[in-house]
Structures are given as C-alpha cells and as structure tokens.
Amino acid sequence: MTLFRLAGDLSHVLAILLLLYKIWTTKSAAGISGKTQLMFCMVYVTRYLDLFTSFISVYNSTMKVLFISASVATVYLIYFKFKATYDGNHDTFRMEFVIVPALILALIWNYAFTFFEISWAFSIFLEAVAILPQLFMVTKTGEAENITSHYLFALGSYRALYILNWIDRYYFEGHWDPIAVTAGIVQTVLYGDFFYLYFTRVIKGRKLQVLP
C-alpha cells in the first residue's frame, strides 16, 4: 500500500467521521444533502458486496465495514432521527440524473459482464458524481458552515490522494485500473471550484460563501 493511498483512506475516514460528528453534536442535518448521503450509502453497499466472498486483509475488511456502517448511520440521522432539521427544500438535485447514467455506463464499461463486476463499476461511477447534490445545495443556499466545508475538503482530498497513489502504482507496479482512474479524475475535478473557495476563504477564517 502506498503512502498516498493510506493518506487518502485516512482522509476518507476523517470526512465521514466529521460529518457524523457535526450532525450528532449540533443535532441538526441543516446544510447537508440527504441525497448525496443516500447515494454514498448505495456506493458502499454495491462496491463491497465482496466483503464476505473474497478476503483481502484485515485492514480492507475493517474499512469496508466502517464505511458501510458509518454511511448507514449518517442516512439514519438525516432521514429519521434529525429529520425535522433536514433542509429538504434546498436538496433539489434529481438523483436519477446521475444514478441512471452511472448504471448504463457500468453495463457498457466493466471488467466482466457479471453481477459483481457491473455492481462494482456502477459503484465507482456513482461515487464520482454522488457529491453533486451537496455541491448544488451549497451553491443554492450560497454558503456552507465551516465544518461542512472541512468535510467536503477531506472528502475531495481522498480521491485526489488516490490519483497520486495510482500514478505511483503505475510506475512501480505496472498496475493500472482505467475505470477507477477515469472516475477518480472526474470526481476530483468536480471539487475544483470548491477547493478554490476553501483555500481562499475558509482557510483565511471566513465562512464559505458562493459569490452571486
């Protein structure tokens, strides 16, 4: 495992825990897109179907269980426990606009036309665009709370670090996964505007506000 990969995974865990911490301590899901979280839940479930069929390492299995359970918990907090605080009126992105294309692409581009491989490819493609409802919501409301900004930064950094990991693996192991790399680049590019705002505003102690 490369250092970039480890840093990426830790960034991913940090993002998920930051979000849970924010919702739990403020007892509020305000400013959080339930649709994005619902799609991340779909991403983890469809990707980690191999959890009980192929063992890779304790680290691998632990992380998979952590991602699935934290994601289910997040969805539960947003749609059930703190439902009254969920800002559904601003969460207007249509999920089918990304789920259907991800599914069609997975049926066309996969490593084998089997249920597991199509499910895996679908998960990779859906993950790349699952953040769109959240970014759309930030744009629509014009701002994001600081902890939401930190969450988005950690989540965006995770795939960017994976790109460095893939470059490393290509050079040193000759390993190359075109589906993950393509989706990973798209995913990172989607955070471009946000990264810019994060560095120019949040880091300087201001709230993240989208200019009109």
Binding site: R5, D50, E117, H175
Partner: peptide
C-alpha cells in the same frame, strides 16, 4: 500487464 480492477483498494 492487463487492466485490472483495484479490488485491494477501497
């Protein structure tokens, strides 16, 4: 080296 899925990754 054939293209392969990074199943060891998360």
């Amino acid at each position: 080296q054939p293209a392969a899925a990074s199943k060891d990754e998360l």
